[in-house]
Design a protein around this nucleic acid. Sequence first.
DNA 1: AGGATATATCGATCGTTGTCAATATACTCG
DNA 2: CGAGTATATTGACAACGATCGATATATCCT
Lengths: 121, 121
Amino acid sequence: MTGTIDIQERILGTRCCGDEPLTDLTATTAQELSDDFLIFGHPIRLQILHMLGRNAGQVCVCDLEAALPVKQPTVSHHLRLLREAGLIDCERQGLWAYYFINRTAVAQRWAAISAYLQPLV
Amino acid sequence: MTGTIDIQERILGTRCCGDEPLTDLTATTAQELSDDFLIFGHPIRLQILHMLGRNAGQVCVCDLEAALPVKQPTVSHHLRLLREAGLIDCERQGLWAYYFINRTAVAQRWAAISAYLQPLV
DNA sequence: AGGATATATCGATCGTTGTCAATATACTCG
DNA sequence: CGAGTATATTGACAACGATCGATATATCCT
């Protein structure tokens, strides 16, 4: 049992910390994982994904702009973040850009998030 | 089929936006949900939760400080955020504070996150 | 070509969050 | 009581993210 110290030692107060690191979740893994959470960490992005999930492939930016409480450059900004994260993609048809969700990418994020959270419950 | 317009109309270019809002995810719900994601959106907090999940009830702040690449006030800061979010709790024994994970609270966040993501895959 | 429209990008501003040194608080032990 | 230690809090600063007006780009229509 390396890395653990006797509970009695701690209660009696002779020492507190063990001498082995308590984590095998590396800093880089934690960083990547926190990015997975962060991309979902904004209400506008959640609403965008929700809309794209419900309206398969038929949503253009003006649809989104009309439904969201932010201006058009802000919508474009969040669309770009979602696109760079791979969660959505778009296809230009003439003047308009039709966005759609990448369900496989969402599933991958969900899997990574769940793999982290599951041992914690 | 209110809220949908014919795909031909869009392709032919006579109009773009429908006249019904595309979302039933309210702004307040989206805000709460994004908070659920955001609390996990930092590598230090992920590492803390990971450590607490593995070492049931026996982790004090100096354990965490020793394992993490930030100073003690920063550890305390993130512990406070996690505590205010209900994800962890602590018990002071003498000079030390022993932190432990609230698995029920984590499970609730996970459920909320999954309920949102599941329809998107 | 020229006017109109949809979307993207730029650039500035602003609020939020993370970090840490310094300090406060609370406890232990001699 | 006084020195020592663990943790929390404060306050300042830096970094980052969100937002939007202005502008650029691309396309359509006449």
